[in-house]
Amino acid sequence: MSTPTLDIRNLTLGFKGYTGFTEVLHGISLSVEPGERVALVGESGSGKSVTARIVLGLLQELRTARIGGSVLFEGRELDGLNKRERHALRGKAMSMIFQDPTSSLNPVFRISDQFHDVLRRADPRITRDAALERAAAILAEVSVRDAERVLNAFPFQLSGGLNQRVMIAMALANEPALLIADEPGTALDVTVQAQTLQLMRKLVEEHHTAVLFISHNLGVVREFADRVYVIYKGRIVEQGPTRAVFEGPRHPYTRALMAAVPRLTGGGIPDIDEDSPDFGAPLETHDAEGRA
């Protein structure tokens, strides 16, 4: 078996504050194989976004954060890397797509300049012309027909859907091994969101990019991911292939979460508790059917 692209083992995270120490991750373990699409799904405050930030090495720079356990990226322990080495990984070996594309692009620079910056991270000597050519090629892959106009524009001159595609194109421009997508498309209209996810799916398949997909939207997760981890209050409560988890959720929290989603086929609003002591039940693991 090959080395997983991302292997998180017993990760803990706590913050030191005025009121003492608060632990927010109580030992989570997850892995993403090369080319695999893995979703981490949970509600706000469950710890899904901080997990992404630790993988990117962003929380390590925070003085109040206490991180335990290990994060292996392509077999390398991230904790052993210094700040510069970690910085070198970001934007090259791993990249991230954020929820709101319009606010994650810099409003005072044209898309072309921002693309040039991104490509320079992998190849510091790339000329502007070569960068633009490469940018146009990858924009074409995300179905941006008018690459020249888009590259010449400022982010606020483009629609949310176009900005999101620009973000996806930038994130994949340096052929990263791992893409972290934190609620991509949540800020977009449903029809645009559906297209964006389709494009993203096509692209990561073609480029064989591993994806850690962070979302609260179960529908989106079902359509995008190969495997799912359900996170609740800093603990993984259920994990398994997407189909198995969606067709036969076992953990009380996963069941409640699924039941709470209003159905397109009707049936009314379900009567479920916001919280229940059952949600603290131990981890449920579905067999890795069809996985080597």
């Binding site: 449903v190 559906a194 529908g219 969606f246 067709e247 159905r263 397109l264």
Partner: peptide, 8 residues
């Protein structure tokens, strides 16, 4: 275009 959770 709505993302859904069940087969139905």
């Amino acid at each position: 275009a709505v993302p859904v959770v069940t087969l139905e």
